[in-house]
Design a protein around this nucleic acid. Sequence first.
DNA 1: GGATCTCATGTTTTT
DNA 2: CATGAGATCC
Length: 758
Amino acid sequence: MGNLDDLNLAQRAAVEAGPGPILVLAGPGSGKTRVLTHRIVYLIQDLDIAPWRIMAVTFTNKAAREMRHRVDSLLGAKSSGLTMGTFHATCARMLRRESENLLGYDGNFLIFDTADQRQVAKQALQDLALDDKKFSPNRMLSGISTAKNELVTPEQYAASNYISEITRRVYQRYQEILVANNAMDFDDLLMNTVLLLDDRPDVLERYQRKYQYILVDEFQDTNTAQYELLKRLVNSQGNIFVVGDADQSIYKWRGADFRNLIRFREHYPNAQLILLEQNYRSTQVILDAAKAIIRHNRERVDKELFTDRKGGSQIIIREAYNDVEEAELVVNTIEQIMLEGVHLGDCAVMYRTNAQSRVLEEAFIRAGINYRLVGATRFYGRREIKDLVAYLRLVHNLADSVSFGRVINTPTRGIGKKTMQTLSQWAQREGRQPGEALIQLIEEPDIAHPFSGRALSSLTRFGNMLRDWISMKDRLTIGELLDTIIDGSGYRLFIDDGTAEGRDRWANVMELRNVAVEFDELTLSEFLEQVALVADIDDLEEDPDAPTLLTLHAAKGLEFPVVFIVGLEEGMLPHSRSLDEADELAEERRLFYVGLTRAMDRIYLSHAFRRTTYGGTEVSVPSRFIQDIPEELLEGGSSGQRRRESQRRVSSWNWSSQTTSHSNRSGIERDARQKTTVRQVLPEPSSGQSLAKDEKKPVLTEAQYRTGQQVHHHKFGNGIVIESKLTGNDEEVVVAFSGSDVGIKKLVASLAKLEIKE
DNA sequence: GGATCTCATGTTTTT
DNA sequence: CATGAGATCC
């Protein structure tokens, strides 16, 4: 009785379906998480299945957490024992538990992230005396990853040409290095689990007996390894429940194959099929636009998505002069719709590539608006964090040569390339990893070794420190261990050099320390696993009042009242790397579809006339996807009209850009037709900031703010004006705020609404 | 051995 | 442009 009354007929049918295999095809916003959680509750409560007999897998920790949370709130504490997590985390757990059956690994194995993988690939290339310019580590890694996703081991790898023969050799060596490091990469977690189950029928049988019910979210994102894993785990009762939507398949590049949905039906011909077609999220307008977009893809089964939310705001498409102005457009529009009662937290800005976030961030900062950013420079990707995690990893697993290499001379302690090389060679001769060799050097004074003088004393000092840390790692909490390492290594002096950047980095270190203290009850092994398997999206906090900036990929599974999708240009979305293959183009379209269907109420689409890609700016063409949205769903003119307008602007901008540096603004002012377009496209020109502000505001001739003035900002508090200058028709004010965590900010006067306090 | 500079190089999406 | 690798200077 997990509140089945809250469900519609199809949802309810899914929740209560079975026994046997069940395939739920769930359109966007059709309540699939709801169905999954209710299904779990139903199994436990109505069918009396013990929670520990249920496994539910997702693709992100966030999804898993959310599901557990919902199950718990429906069920109370009775869900304990439930296996719920990402594919990767679930596999890692199984592998650790079965580590004695794993050839070459022990239960302390580490998980290597992408940066670590690159190091290993480089090492492999070096070991094979191959030129890493001719065979780029990335290329090698992608070949290796593809193989692993297809469950192809180095021995099985069939080389069909020169480059694949190289890949095969590198793969082989790469794998040897991983084993020597007692480390697995992400793909290994999946592949090794499958290999283990194939290798050990007794283990397989144990798991099959244990898990009577398996549930899978986002099934369209499974790759071969994941699919095969599930196939093995499902026992003869065949109680597997999968939810997916081929139209939201956006991870082909990671080996995902939505045809697994079809394979599922072939493999389980008796599978019950349930369609969730009612959308509870979006307005009719949004849904119609999304359907119009996705309909262009071939090779798909059309779902009859429908919603009760008839009508709705029309979709707004705008062109900005360049990416900076596009960002301003977004910010201005957000400020404007706030007047209509929209909250900052209701808004999301989505883009194709992480690189696009910067311009947006800058625009939000100028406007003094907080934002939350998903991804881009992930916390655990920062240098200082990686350094310290490397220390922890090395202490935990002395065999980790990647961490060893990272840490041995950070902070610098007089161990250079030469010494490092000698150490590696010596270690290799002794059949050990460099870290192990170093400890041996410390503990066996009589051992023959190739070091002397300065190198020896540096090595000894570091080795002693390392040995001490290892000896206390089990007595100390992770926080204490981290403190000891920071202290002993002199890391603080190294990183906190007094500059603003140094302070930021130190602040990050302290943040890591907080995390460590927070996870104090975890073992070091668990902590490191946690660190390795977090995704960017995982630490998205719940609704602070700030707009969210994220990639379209990261947006999957989320919803927002107001969605902005920026950079709708050929080469951007669809991305240039996908233009010459129909499959990839179809995936870009799905990506756009995913973005559109995140929106509940309003959608703003934009593209820039010129875009700054690394180096210069390039003129861009509006995305082909825009033309696929029916005109009656758009506000402001037909697409044909817009295209003509944009053609005209091309000439006017080209013309004006040669004369003034603020060509965009003057260009707009000079082109009467452009004004018309802007007006048409704006939601409410009357209340309008946004581009239209240029027309209405008198040009500023004198600065409002002066150096030394005391000012107040609603968010940053009190401060003193350091500098103020006119920029075109606005004023840029630099203010030093007294709040210690605020510091110096550059603000745009018309947006920041500074009060002068004199 | 180490720091600093220059140059090239390449950029999708992520567990 | 932002990062990394190699060259150069201390």
